[in-house]
Measured scan of single mutants.
Amino acid sequence: MDALKSAGRALIRSPSLAKQSWGGGGRHRKLPENWTDTRETLLEGMLFSLKYLGMTLVEQPKGEELSAAAIKRIVATAKASGKKLQKVTLKVSPRGIILTDNLTNQLIENVSIYRISYCTADKMHDKVFAYIAQSQHNQSLECHAFLCTKRKMAQAVTLTVAQAFKVAFEFWQVSKEEKEKRDKASQEGGDVLGARQDCTPPLKSLVATGNLLDLEETAKAPLSTVSANTTNMDEVPRPQALSGSSVVWELDDGLDEAFSRLAQSRTNPQVLDTGLTAQDMHYAQCLSPVDWDKPDSSGTEQDDLFSF
């Protein structure tokens, strides 16, 4: 819950932080000083300027060897085509990944977070970031790969997607708890209302004896509580940590079903599988986004697919 609360507080303090972009060759504004600060901008989305290598189908939802083989196929196909790589912007948030063309600003792909089953910074092609997700059109699994400016960037994108998945799962947990509370309150309110109706004398007997209905007592009954809980029953509950912020979080049926399955089948359902080692994760978390744009010590960066 700490990640969720800190993310909400950060967004309320400075929503404009989320509009910064990394990996864009110096076009961005001043960047936060450390990885923790940038992680807090996830709610509205972190932007990464990358190059799209392509996509291939895979048979399993996750796995280092599986993704490595898929990336190898994608890279080989991209090299064989001889075409310049498409420059894209990857927007990562707890909602998922939005992929747009840098030149036309046209939407290429919009992947809900619950469809993503794996992401990684490839070991062999260490400047490549990739994720595996279920197609929104059918049940097939797709591996999408992107060329980053350097290994640090690939690791940073991988960690960002993993963190977005974690925050999304926490949102789901909060929403589920809130819905259970509202359902319980609604049920209790309905029981109270039913009890009051059972003990209320029939209207005919009131008229016969000349008694008047006590409207004041009726007004004191917990009807307002019942209506408050039943009027918006169809509205999706939102985490309290975000009250007053500009973010509107809505959970669709697909996300609810997917996270429910994860909660039942996995020990740590909030953790998205990645190909990063503990050492890689520690190294990337210690980086400032400013470091992502620094040239690798191995030599001059080449803006070309064939540089790796």
Rank of each mutant, 00 (worst) to 15 (best):
Asp303Gly: 08
Met124Gln: 10
Ile71His: 08
Gly24Asp: 12
Lys179Trp: 13
Gln285Cys: 03
Asp191Ser: 08
Ile113Phe: 02
Ile97Gly: 10
Ala80Asn: 12
Ser6Trp: 10
Gln139Glu: 12
Glu180Gly: 14
Val167Lys: 01
Glu188Gln: 03
Trp22Leu: 02
Cys286Asn: 05
Arg27Pro: 10
Thr100Asn: 14
Gly82Phe: 08
Thr77Asn: 13
Ala7Ser: 12
Ala221Cys: 00
Trp35Gly: 09
Arg9Val: 12
Asn138Phe: 11
Gln279Ser: 01
Ser140Pro: 15
Thr104Phe: 07
Leu90Asn: 09
Ser265Asn: 00
Thr225Arg: 10
Leu276Lys: 07
Ser117Pro: 11
Glu170Leu: 02
Phe165Ser: 01
Thr218Ala: 14
Asp214Tyr: 11
Leu103Asn: 02
Arg9His: 09
Glu235Cys: 07
Gly24Val: 11
Cys199Lys: 13
Thr230His: 01
Ala241Gln: 11
Ser16Arg: 14
Arg238His: 07
Glu40Ser: 06
Val207His: 03
Lys179Ala: 00
Pro269Arg: 01
Lys87Asn: 08
Gly25Tyr: 06
Asn102Arg: 14
Asp37Trp: 06
Gln264Phe: 05
Tyr283Gln: 04
Cys119Met: 00
Val290His: 07
Gly45Ser: 06
Ser265Leu: 00
Thr100Leu: 12
Met124Asn: 08
Leu276Ile: 01
Ser288Tyr: 01
Ser246Leu: 00
Leu203Met: 02
Thr104Gln: 06
Asp256Ala: 14
Lys166Phe: 02
Arg238Ala: 14
Ala263Val: 10
Glu40Leu: 09
Thr104His: 05
Pro61Ser: 07
Lys83Tyr: 05
Trp249Glu: 10
Thr104Ser: 15
Leu251Met: 07
Asn229Gln: 05
Ala278Asn: 06
Ala284Trp: 01
Arg182Thr: 15
Arg182Pro: 11
Gly8Leu: 06
Thr209Pro: 06
Val88Pro: 11
Ile132Pro: 14
Lys87His: 09
Asp2Gln: 09
Pro295His: 08
Lys181Leu: 07
Trp292Val: 02
Leu42Val: 14
Tyr131Pro: 04
Ala156Ile: 09
Gln302Asp: 01
Thr149Trp: 00
Glu235Met: 02
Gly210Ser: 11
Gly244Asp: 15
Ala208Tyr: 00
Leu255Trp: 10
Ala156Tyr: 05
Glu257Ile: 02
Ala121Thr: 08
Gln285Val: 02
Lys166Trp: 02
Ser135Leu: 14
Thr277Ala: 10
Arg196Pro: 13
Lys83Trp: 06
Glu180Tyr: 11
Ser16His: 00
Leu42Ile: 15
Gln20Ala: 05
Asp2Cys: 06
Val157Phe: 06
Gln197Arg: 05
Ala219Phe: 03
Val58Leu: 13
Glu235Gln: 15
Gly254Tyr: 06
Lys62Trp: 07
Gly8Thr: 04
Asp126Trp: 01
Asn229Thr: 06
Lys62Glu: 06
Met124Ala: 07
Val92Asn: 12
Arg182Ser: 15
Met233Glu: 03
Leu242Gln: 10
Tyr118Asn: 09
Ala80Trp: 11
Thr274Lys: 00
Ala18Lys: 08
Val157Gly: 05
Gly45Val: 12
Leu276Gly: 03
Gly54Met: 07
Cys286Gly: 09
Val247Phe: 01
Lys62Arg: 06
Cys148Ile: 00
Met281Pro: 03
Ile71Tyr: 07
Asp291Ser: 00
Asp214Ile: 12
Cys199Gly: 06
Pro222Val: 14
Ala219Pro: 10
Glu250Trp: 06
Thr300Asp: 03
Leu31Lys: 10
Thr200Phe: 02
Val290Tyr: 07
Pro295Met: 06
Ala208Ile: 04
Trp249Met: 03
Ala241Trp: 01
Ala7Asp: 13
Arg196Cys: 10
Leu193Ile: 08
Thr149Pro: 15
Ala10Gln: 15
Ala228Tyr: 06
Ile132Met: 14
Glu188Thr: 05
Thr209Leu: 07
Cys143Met: 10
Lys5Gly: 13
Cys148Phe: 10
Lys181Trp: 15
Thr160Cys: 12
Thr160Leu: 12
Lys294Val: 07
Asp126Ala: 11
Ala69Val: 05
Asp183His: 06
Thr200Leu: 05
Ala284Gln: 00
Glu59Leu: 10
Ile97Tyr: 06
Trp249Val: 03
Gln270Ser: 04
Gly24Gln: 04
Trp172Thr: 01
Gln139Cys: 15
Leu4Ser: 03
Glu177Cys: 02
Thr218Met: 07
Asn138Ile: 12
Lys83Thr: 09
Lys166Leu: 03
Val226Cys: 09
Gly254Ala: 14
Arg115Trp: 11
Pro15Gln: 07
Asp122Arg: 12
Asp122Trp: 09
Gln302Leu: 15
Met46Leu: 15
Val207Pro: 05
Asp291Lys: 05
Asp291Gly: 01
Tyr118Val: 03
Leu90Phe: 13
Gln155Arg: 15
Lys72Asn: 14
Asp37Pro: 10
Ser112Gly: 08
Tyr114Asn: 03
Gly299Thr: 03
Arg39Val: 11
Pro239Asp: 07
Asp122Leu: 05
Asp291Gln: 03
Asp122Gly: 05
Arg95Leu: 14
Ala208Gly: 07
Ala3Asp: 08
Leu147Glu: 01
Ala10Asn: 12
Gln134Pro: 15
Leu31Ala: 01
Gly82Ile: 03
Leu255Gln: 08
Ser6Cys: 07
Val207Ala: 15
Gln20Thr: 15
Ala228Lys: 04
